[in-house]
Design a protein around this nucleic acid. Structure first.
Length: 475
RNA sequence: GGGGGAAUGGGGUAGCCUGGCAUCCUACCAGCUUUGGGAGCUGGUGACCCGAGUUCGAAUCUCGGUUCCCCCA
């Protein structure tokens, strides 16, 4: 059992969970954390899930350099202004001071679009769809938190170039769709999807789409973004192509990314007072087996029985770990695997073997059940599905309960002060109204949902609304 | 961006005010014993964040740095 309770003190609880479950450790430099084996394994599940979808869409993986010349970043002024406050610079190589500062990439639009300008010359070169799995550095000065806000993090950045705006818009939509699927199907995290307001969009983008999540402390978390860059970067980097009828046109580009932040979201949303709760589809170990015995003979008998159902489980693609440690008691192991979030535990001792079965315990609810040997594989397979679905359902209910509606300015302020999640309100679309509520409550517009028709007047200025905005405090 | 708190074996801590052999729990190693919700006994390894200053003597006092946490914007 953890020292901190999730409901009583979410912040302390979160820090205790990520460290004691061996997901991460701190590095020697502020904001740079170590992803330990348990969290990197989850990251690998996420990368596999997304990489398969990218490739099916014709996106190919590349690797672009970590160091970006200052002159590149400066080419797009909004982009530069947006990122320069948090860029880390290399100014020296060995004993030599460099002639031009080199940025440790905060994102790679500039260096990738520079390449695009040399690789694209004909309509036959389009679309060009690239992605890279890499790290980026953003010298954040806000409060840092493992996974959720660090100065270095791992991510994936997709960069594509298209002949038409329509194709680019479709690409932006597909990318956001993959992220939504990844969150919902793999991580069991429900999301809200929509568009960012102009003040929150990616520096240099025409528009930014986002998926937003609700954290247990009532704050919103941006889970992934997909941007239409329009012809902005194409014009600056000179990415032109010849059409079939020999006209010269600029390409339309997109970029999109998700980060290791998703791991933090998963921990926060599903974890409980016993520790991590891993959704079965991202759990590196889905089923742990704890043999219980009093004599060497019983031990051998238990291990013999385990062999039978272990092979059966593995044949169904279920990952199984048998905890044979002799220096730990069963009770200790139960607690240990619960802390580490393994979805299903199988206990097998003399009592079970006498009845030709095992005891199966689910991590999410703690419910124990006796299951005869012949039904173990079916039971566990079904249980894993049930846990996956159950976690998503529970989180979705919390998300829905975390959206309230404001009819006027006081409503909006009061609801935001309660810090229970998103507040939906009519908005005129003016950045000044957005700024005003940010000054007062610290909350921003997290998104304008897709396909949500405006109704009523702006809750801030009373002019006719252009959109329904979701306000919240963010991470 | 502003304010506050903290740093002592792998993890968690006492000691600090009032300077004098660094406390306890846990983990780890060896052995015996044990195993259905964090077992027990015996023995053992292991720490004062970094740098400077004050002092006969610094975990403790002073200054600087680094890192972590919290609150506000």
């Amino acid at each position: 059992m953890l020292q901190h309770k999730k409901d009583a003190d979410f912040g302390e609880w979160y820090l205790e969970v990520v460290q004691s479950s061996e997901l991460m450790d701190y590095g020697p430099v502020q904001g740079c954390m170590i992803l330990r084996a348990r969290s990197y394994a989850v990251w690998e599940k996420i990368t596999s899930f997304l990489d398969a979808r990218f490739k099916a869409d014709g996106v190919q993986n590349y690797y672009f350099p970590l160091l970006i010349p200052e002159s590149f970043l400066k080419k797009e002024s909004a982009h530069f202004e947006g990122f320069v406050p948090e860029v880390a610079w290399v100014t020296q190589g060995g004993n030599e001071t460099l002639g031009e500062r080199l940025a440790l990439r905060p994102t790679s639009e500039t260096i990738i679009n520079d390449s695009f300008s040399r690789w694209i010359s004909s309509h036959r070169d389009l679309p060009l769809k690239t992605n890279q799995w890499c790290n980026v550095i953003r010298w954040d000065t806000k409060t840092l938190k493992p996974f959720l806000r660090t100065r270095e993090f791992l991510w994936q950045e997709g960069h594509t170039a298209h002949a038409t705006r329509e194709e680019a818009v479709a690409q932006v939509g597909r990318a956001l769709g993959w992220y939504k699927e990844c969150c919902e199907q793999l991580l069991a995290i429900p999301v809200l999807a929509g568009v960012k307001s102009d003040s929150e969009k990616f520096p240099g983008a025409e528009y930014t789409t986002t998926i937003e999540m609700l954290m247990p402390d009532g704050k919103a978390l941006q889970g992934g973004t997909s941007h239409l860059l329009g012809q902005n970067f194409a014009k600056i980097f000179g990415i032109k192509y010849k059409t079939q009828d020999e006209r010269e046109e600029f390409v339309w580009t997109t970029s999109w990314g998700v980060t290791t932040r998703l791991i933090g979201a998963m921990v926060a949303i599903h974890g409980d007072d016993k520790g991590l709760v891993l959704p079965p589809r991202v759990a590196p170990v889905q089923c742990v087996v704890v043999p219980i015995f009093y004599s060497d003979e019983e031990r051998k008998m238990a291990l013999f029985n385990i062999q039978n159902f272990k092979a059966e489980l593995e044949a169904r693609g279920i990952s199984v770990l048998v905890d044979e440690r002799s220096d730990k008691t069963p009770g200790w192991k139960f607690n240990d695997w619960e802390l580490k979030g393994v979805p299903v535990r199988i206990e097998i001792g003399v009592r079970d073997m006498a009845q030709e079965g095992v005891t199966i315990v689910r991590r999410d609810s703690g419910v124990k059940e006796f299951v005869p040997n012949s039904k173990i594989a079916d039971f566990v397979a079904h249980l894993l599905d049930d846990i996956q679905i159950g976690l998503f359902k529970r989180a979705k209910e919390r998300l829905e309960a975390g959206v309230s509606e404001a009819r006027d300015t006081d409503d909006l302020k009061n609801l935001l002060d309660e810090r229970k999640g998103f507040v939906r309100a009519a908005w005129c679309g003016d950045a000044r109204c957005e700024e005003a509520i940010k000054e007062e409550s610290g909350a921003t517009i997290r998104l304008v949902p897709f396909g949500d028709a405006p109704k009523g007047d702006c809750v801030l200025c009373g002019k006719p609304s252009k959109a329904t905005a979701y306000f919240a405090r963010g991470y």
